[in-house]
Write a protein that binds this DNA or RNA. Structure first.
Lengths: 187, 187
DNA sequence: CTCTAACATGAACATGAACTCCGGTTCCGA
DNA sequence: TCGGAACCGGAGTTCATGTTCATGTTAGAG
């Protein structure tokens, strides 16, 4: 996220917003496969203007992803307000995954092997990791999650579900299997 | 896989093999991020030679992936020979995933949203899908897998595990969670 | 209203990677 | 041994996409 310096000229601020909106929609649809020219056109601006506001494509992407992480933090906070620990966990899990489904850029950011990983950055700039940890702990303490379940496992199952987000909603089935386990009653 | 026409000149056959070996190793390490020039150098050949044997990068990749799918089919066949249905299932599952771990190109091919998907192609050209289906059915019939478990679910959990193959072996933990379920004993 | 610093524009440029092309080389049947 | 068809090499072409910059435009303070 590039610094939101104070006192931007009115038209500049308006354009910055337009870039963010256009990039947000396009990145959400097609991940970072979108081209800068496309974003500029969608925003009704020239490419040069994108570069006035963001150093490069990566910086623009970072701004978008950062936004999503803030929304995720808000979601986690809301989920944590539920009295029932399991309800809190489920709200977080499905809310997180539905956001990922709606935003390809967010999904790729989380699935990719970048270094350092986006989730690390998120941990530093937001409270997402901390809140998730609390929600997990609550569910474990209530006996609703296996005793050795950790916040890292949340990342694991979450990545697993996101990997099944091509077409349809196979990811819901995946989550079901993970929640209930795939074993049968056999001896 | 480009046709393995009969009676290739001796040097041509040798070079074709060298290309396949070099590409196999490099693709396995870094997925399709490797460049044609790199493969050529590793094989000790000029790029032109790669293009004599394979129409384009995609075709070369396809040849490599095809090889892996044949190996997977052999693995499935072996697994299916186990008398114990659960043993057969586990052998297939872990064998498949360990191969995926060792080969980035294979992994990306399976995780990517290509159209048609590689698994569809595999189903047409090999017996992998059919054998997997039989193994799954055996485990279900024996009550070792939940009654509604389908071959599609194998793909699901398999993709989920592969998404956790960046660094370390988080994927093993993921598989453990899926096999055992993440729920606790709480009411 | 005026003036200028801030801003916008988009054609031109830089980069990188897939792929082509043809002069030179090698295999192999006769 | 020899002819020529098959094959090889790798510099150069092409194409796609991110990024720059010289020129023109405007907001907004004075």
């Amino acid at each position: 996220m590039t610094a939101p310096e104070r006192s931007l000229r009115a038209d500049a601020r308006r354009n910055r917003e337009a870039v963010l909106d256009a990039a947000g929609e396009l990145f959400a649809q097609r991940g970072d496969a979108v081209q800068m020219d496309e974003i500029a056109e969608r925003a009704g601006l020239g490419v040069g203007t994108l570069y006035r506001h963001f150093a490069d494509k990566q910086a623009l992407l970072a701004a978008i992803i950062g936004r999503r992480f803030e929304a995720m933090t808000a979601l986690a906070r809301t989920a944590d307000e539920a009295e029932d620990p399991w309800m809190a966990f489920e709200t977080l899990l499905y809310g997180y995954l539905e956001s990922a489904q709606a935003d390809a850029a967010f999904r790729f950011a989380l699935l990719g092997p970048e270094e350092p990983s986006w989730s690390d950055i998120a941990a530093e700039k937001t409270d997402f990791a901390a809140i998730t940890e609390r929600i997990v702990r609550r569910a474990v303490d209530a006996g609703r999650l296996r005793a050795d379940f950790r916040a890292d496992d949340f990342i694991l199952i979450t990545r697993g579900a996101m990997a099944n987000m091509t077409g349809a909603d196979g990811w819901r089935r995946h989550v079901t299997l993970v929640l209930e386990g795939i074993r049968g009653p056999g001896r």
